[in-house]
Computed example of a mutant assay.
Amino acid sequence: MDRLSLIGLFLALASLVGGSILKGAGLASLWSPAAFVIVIVGTLAAILLQTAPAVFKRALHIVRWVVRPPHSDRRELIALIVEWSNIARRQGLLGLEPQVEAQRDPFLRKGLQLLVDGVEPESIRHMLEIELSSQEHQDLAATRFYEGMGIYAPTLGIIGAVLGLIAVMKNLADPSKLGHGIAAAFTATIYGIASANLLFLPIANKLKGIIAHSSRDREMAIEGLISIAQGENPRNIETNLSGFLH
Protein backbone atom coordinates (compact mmCIF):
# COMPACT_ATOMS: atom_id res chain seq x y z
CA MET A 1 0.00 0.00 0.00
CA ASP A 2 1.39 3.40 -1.03
CA ARG A 3 0.63 5.64 1.94
CA LEU A 4 1.96 8.77 0.21
CA SER A 5 -0.63 8.42 -2.55
CA LEU A 6 -3.42 7.94 -0.01
CA ILE A 7 -2.25 11.01 1.91
CA GLY A 8 -2.08 12.96 -1.35
CA LEU A 9 -5.65 12.01 -2.29
CA PHE A 10 -6.87 12.98 1.17
CA LEU A 11 -5.05 16.33 1.10
CA ALA A 12 -6.37 17.05 -2.40
CA LEU A 13 -9.93 16.63 -1.18
CA ALA A 14 -9.21 18.52 2.04
CA SER A 15 -7.69 21.45 0.14
CA LEU A 16 -10.85 21.90 -1.92
CA VAL A 17 -13.31 21.43 0.92
CA GLY A 18 -11.23 23.36 3.45
CA GLY A 19 -10.48 26.16 1.01
CA SER A 20 -14.14 26.55 0.13
CA ILE A 21 -15.12 26.74 3.80
CA LEU A 22 -12.31 29.15 4.74
CA LYS A 23 -13.19 31.42 1.82
CA GLY A 24 -16.79 31.53 3.03
CA ALA A 25 -18.22 29.86 -0.07
CA GLY A 26 -19.45 26.80 1.82
CA LEU A 27 -19.71 23.18 0.76
CA ALA A 28 -22.87 23.72 -1.26
CA SER A 29 -20.94 25.86 -3.75
CA LEU A 30 -18.81 22.87 -4.72
CA TRP A 31 -21.75 20.78 -5.88
CA SER A 32 -23.22 21.42 -9.31
CA PRO A 33 -24.79 18.58 -11.33
CA ALA A 34 -24.57 20.66 -14.51
CA ALA A 35 -20.84 21.32 -14.01
CA PHE A 36 -20.25 17.62 -13.28
CA VAL A 37 -21.97 16.58 -16.49
CA ILE A 38 -20.15 19.13 -18.63
CA VAL A 39 -16.66 18.64 -17.17
CA ILE A 40 -16.36 15.07 -15.90
CA VAL A 41 -18.72 13.34 -18.36
CA GLY A 42 -17.46 15.56 -21.18
CA THR A 43 -13.82 14.77 -20.35
CA LEU A 44 -14.57 11.06 -20.30
CA ALA A 45 -16.33 11.36 -23.66
CA ALA A 46 -13.38 13.19 -25.21
CA ILE A 47 -10.79 10.71 -23.97
CA LEU A 48 -12.85 7.71 -25.10
CA LEU A 49 -12.93 9.15 -28.60
CA GLN A 50 -9.13 9.01 -28.82
CA THR A 51 -8.51 5.77 -26.91
CA ALA A 52 -8.36 2.26 -28.33
CA PRO A 53 -10.36 -0.40 -26.40
CA ALA A 54 -7.21 -2.31 -25.41
CA VAL A 55 -5.58 0.87 -24.04
CA PHE A 56 -8.76 1.77 -22.13
CA LYS A 57 -8.86 -1.70 -20.56
CA ARG A 58 -5.19 -1.49 -19.59
CA ALA A 59 -5.68 2.00 -18.12
CA LEU A 60 -8.45 0.73 -15.86
CA HIS A 61 -6.28 -2.22 -14.83
CA ILE A 62 -3.17 -0.27 -13.82
CA VAL A 63 -4.82 2.68 -12.05
CA ARG A 64 -4.78 0.60 -8.84
CA TRP A 65 -0.99 0.85 -8.93
CA VAL A 66 -1.36 4.42 -7.61
CA VAL A 67 -2.25 3.09 -4.16
CA ARG A 68 -1.06 -0.51 -4.54
CA PRO A 69 2.01 -0.60 -6.81
CA PRO A 70 3.48 -3.91 -8.04
CA HIS A 71 5.83 -5.59 -5.61
CA SER A 72 9.43 -4.55 -6.16
CA ASP A 73 12.41 -5.60 -4.08
CA ARG A 74 15.68 -5.48 -5.99
CA ARG A 75 17.71 -7.04 -3.19
CA GLU A 76 15.30 -9.95 -3.15
CA LEU A 77 15.57 -10.26 -6.95
CA ILE A 78 19.36 -10.22 -6.82
CA ALA A 79 19.32 -12.97 -4.19
CA LEU A 80 16.98 -15.01 -6.38
CA ILE A 81 19.18 -14.62 -9.46
CA VAL A 82 22.28 -15.58 -7.47
CA GLU A 83 20.41 -18.67 -6.22
CA TRP A 84 19.60 -19.59 -9.83
CA SER A 85 23.23 -19.13 -10.83
CA ASN A 86 24.33 -21.48 -8.04
CA ILE A 87 21.82 -24.10 -9.18
CA ALA A 88 22.98 -23.76 -12.79
CA ARG A 89 26.59 -24.03 -11.67
CA ARG A 90 25.95 -27.26 -9.74
CA GLN A 91 23.31 -28.96 -11.89
CA GLY A 92 23.54 -27.25 -15.25
CA LEU A 93 20.87 -25.09 -16.89
CA LEU A 94 18.41 -27.99 -16.90
CA GLY A 95 18.52 -27.87 -13.11
CA LEU A 96 16.53 -24.62 -13.33
CA GLU A 97 13.52 -26.34 -14.86
CA PRO A 98 11.66 -26.76 -11.51
CA GLN A 99 12.11 -23.00 -10.94
CA VAL A 100 10.21 -22.08 -14.11
CA GLU A 101 6.72 -23.02 -12.93
CA ALA A 102 7.44 -21.64 -9.46
CA GLN A 103 7.73 -18.11 -10.88
CA ARG A 104 4.59 -15.97 -10.83
CA ASP A 105 6.16 -13.16 -12.85
CA PRO A 106 5.59 -14.02 -16.55
CA PHE A 107 8.72 -12.10 -17.56
CA LEU A 108 11.02 -14.05 -15.22
CA ARG A 109 9.28 -17.28 -16.13
CA LYS A 110 9.91 -16.65 -19.83
CA GLY A 111 13.56 -15.78 -19.18
CA LEU A 112 14.10 -18.93 -17.13
CA GLN A 113 12.45 -21.06 -19.79
CA LEU A 114 14.79 -19.63 -22.42
CA LEU A 115 17.73 -20.53 -20.16
CA VAL A 116 16.48 -24.08 -19.69
CA ASP A 117 15.94 -24.43 -23.44
CA GLY A 118 19.60 -23.57 -24.02
CA VAL A 119 18.96 -20.46 -26.13
CA GLU A 120 22.07 -18.41 -26.93
CA PRO A 121 22.70 -15.44 -24.56
CA GLU A 122 22.34 -12.78 -27.27
CA SER A 123 19.09 -14.35 -28.46
CA ILE A 124 17.81 -14.34 -24.89
CA ARG A 125 18.70 -10.68 -24.56
CA HIS A 126 17.02 -9.84 -27.86
CA MET A 127 13.76 -11.64 -27.03
CA LEU A 128 13.53 -10.29 -23.49
CA GLU A 129 14.28 -6.74 -24.58
CA ILE A 130 11.47 -6.97 -27.14
CA GLU A 131 9.17 -8.24 -24.38
CA LEU A 132 10.26 -5.39 -22.09
CA SER A 133 9.82 -2.74 -24.79
CA SER A 134 6.40 -4.04 -25.75
CA GLN A 135 5.13 -4.09 -22.16
CA GLU A 136 6.54 -0.64 -21.43
CA HIS A 137 4.94 0.77 -24.59
CA GLN A 138 1.57 -0.73 -23.64
CA ASP A 139 1.70 0.63 -20.09
CA LEU A 140 2.83 4.12 -21.14
CA ALA A 141 -0.02 4.26 -23.65
CA ALA A 142 -2.37 3.53 -20.74
CA THR A 143 -0.92 6.43 -18.71
CA ARG A 144 -1.73 8.78 -21.60
CA PHE A 145 -5.40 8.00 -20.91
CA TYR A 146 -5.16 9.92 -17.61
CA GLU A 147 -2.79 12.49 -19.06
CA GLY A 148 -5.35 13.22 -21.77
CA MET A 149 -8.09 13.66 -19.17
CA GLY A 150 -5.84 16.16 -17.41
CA ILE A 151 -5.52 18.11 -20.65
CA TYR A 152 -9.21 18.12 -21.60
CA ALA A 153 -10.73 18.77 -18.16
CA PRO A 154 -9.62 22.44 -17.76
CA THR A 155 -10.86 23.32 -21.25
CA LEU A 156 -14.23 21.73 -20.56
CA GLY A 157 -14.28 23.63 -17.29
CA ILE A 158 -14.05 26.86 -19.27
CA ILE A 159 -16.82 25.66 -21.58
CA GLY A 160 -18.96 24.96 -18.52
CA ALA A 161 -18.25 28.44 -17.16
CA VAL A 162 -19.20 30.07 -20.47
CA LEU A 163 -22.44 28.08 -20.66
CA GLY A 164 -23.20 29.16 -17.11
CA LEU A 165 -22.57 32.81 -17.93
CA ILE A 166 -24.86 32.51 -20.94
CA ALA A 167 -27.60 31.35 -18.57
CA VAL A 168 -26.81 34.33 -16.30
CA MET A 169 -27.08 36.77 -19.18
CA LYS A 170 -30.62 35.55 -19.79
CA ASN A 171 -31.55 36.62 -16.26
CA LEU A 172 -30.09 40.14 -16.30
CA ALA A 173 -33.55 41.51 -15.67
CA ASP A 174 -33.63 39.70 -12.32
CA PRO A 175 -30.63 40.89 -10.20
CA SER A 176 -31.48 38.43 -7.42
CA LYS A 177 -30.40 35.53 -9.63
CA LEU A 178 -27.14 37.03 -10.87
CA GLY A 179 -24.90 36.26 -7.89
CA HIS A 180 -25.96 32.63 -7.61
CA GLY A 181 -25.77 32.16 -11.37
CA ILE A 182 -22.24 33.54 -11.67
CA ALA A 183 -21.04 31.41 -8.74
CA ALA A 184 -22.54 28.29 -10.33
CA ALA A 185 -20.86 29.15 -13.64
CA PHE A 186 -17.41 29.24 -12.10
CA THR A 187 -17.96 25.92 -10.30
CA ALA A 188 -17.35 24.22 -13.66
CA THR A 189 -13.93 25.90 -13.86
CA ILE A 190 -13.10 24.56 -10.41
CA TYR A 191 -14.11 21.05 -11.48
CA GLY A 192 -11.95 21.23 -14.59
CA ILE A 193 -8.78 22.69 -13.10
CA ALA A 194 -8.99 20.81 -9.80
CA SER A 195 -9.65 17.40 -11.34
CA ALA A 196 -6.78 17.89 -13.80
CA ASN A 197 -4.17 19.12 -11.34
CA LEU A 198 -5.19 17.20 -8.22
CA LEU A 199 -6.21 13.89 -9.80
CA PHE A 200 -5.68 13.09 -13.49
CA LEU A 201 -2.18 14.52 -14.09
CA PRO A 202 -0.77 13.28 -10.75
CA ILE A 203 -2.16 9.80 -11.49
CA ALA A 204 -0.50 9.82 -14.93
CA ASN A 205 2.86 10.93 -13.50
CA LYS A 206 2.69 8.42 -10.65
CA LEU A 207 2.04 5.59 -13.09
CA LYS A 208 4.93 6.72 -15.31
CA GLY A 209 7.28 6.54 -12.33
CA ILE A 210 6.06 3.06 -11.40
CA ILE A 211 6.44 1.84 -14.98
CA ALA A 212 9.99 3.25 -15.20
CA HIS A 213 10.89 1.51 -11.93
CA SER A 214 9.42 -1.80 -13.12
CA SER A 215 11.30 -1.54 -16.43
CA ARG A 216 14.54 -1.00 -14.51
CA ASP A 217 13.80 -4.13 -12.47
CA ARG A 218 13.38 -6.11 -15.67
CA GLU A 219 16.57 -4.70 -17.15
CA MET A 220 18.36 -5.98 -14.06
CA ALA A 221 16.69 -9.38 -14.48
CA ILE A 222 17.85 -9.52 -18.12
CA GLU A 223 21.44 -8.83 -17.12
CA GLY A 224 21.26 -11.51 -14.44
CA LEU A 225 19.80 -14.13 -16.76
CA ILE A 226 22.38 -13.37 -19.46
CA SER A 227 25.16 -13.71 -16.87
CA ILE A 228 23.82 -17.13 -15.87
CA ALA A 229 23.64 -18.18 -19.53
CA GLN A 230 27.27 -17.13 -19.95
CA GLY A 231 28.31 -19.19 -16.91
CA GLU A 232 29.61 -16.28 -14.84
CA ASN A 233 30.60 -16.73 -11.21
CA PRO A 234 27.65 -16.13 -8.80
CA ARG A 235 29.73 -13.65 -6.79
CA ASN A 236 30.49 -11.63 -9.91
CA ILE A 237 26.82 -11.66 -10.87
CA GLU A 238 25.85 -10.34 -7.43
CA THR A 239 28.48 -7.61 -7.62
CA ASN A 240 27.40 -6.51 -11.08
CA LEU A 241 23.70 -6.46 -10.24
CA SER A 242 24.32 -4.48 -7.05
CA GLY A 243 24.89 -1.46 -9.29
CA PHE A 244 21.13 -1.38 -9.91
CA LEU A 245 20.51 -0.67 -6.24
CA HIS A 246 21.86 2.87 -6.47
Rank of each mutant, 00 (worst) to 15 (best):
T187I: 09
S176Q: 09
L77S: 10
R104E: 15
L245G: 09
I226N: 04
L115K: 11
M1I: 11
V37M: 10
F107T: 05
H71A: 13
R74N: 10
G26D: 06
K206I: 02
V82T: 11
L60R: 01
Q91A: 14
A88F: 03
V100E: 03
F200R: 00
A184F: 01
P234F: 11
S134D: 08
A34I: 09
Q113H: 06
W84S: 01
L11P: 05
H137Q: 10
R75W: 11
N86C: 09
I124P: 05
A167F: 02
H213A: 15
E97T: 05
T239N: 15
S227C: 09
I38K: 06
I62S: 03
S32A: 08
A161H: 06
R216L: 15
V41W: 10
V55Q: 08
V41D: 07
H213G: 07
I7Q: 08
S176A: 10
K110D: 07
G150V: 00
A212N: 13
V63L: 12
F186E: 01
S5W: 01
K57A: 14
S176V: 06
S227F: 02
G224V: 02
L108A: 14
T239Y: 12
I182C: 04
H61L: 09
S123D: 09
V100L: 02
G157P: 00
L241A: 06
I7P: 03
I166P: 01
G111E: 10
S29G: 03
A25L: 14
R216P: 03
A35H: 02
Y152T: 10
A25D: 12
S215V: 15
Q91H: 10
I166G: 08
N236I: 10
I7A: 13
G19K: 14
T155E: 01
H213S: 14
G224N: 02
T51H: 07
N171D: 14
A28I: 07
L11A: 14
L27S: 05
L94N: 09
T143I: 00
S176I: 00
S29W: 03
A88L: 04
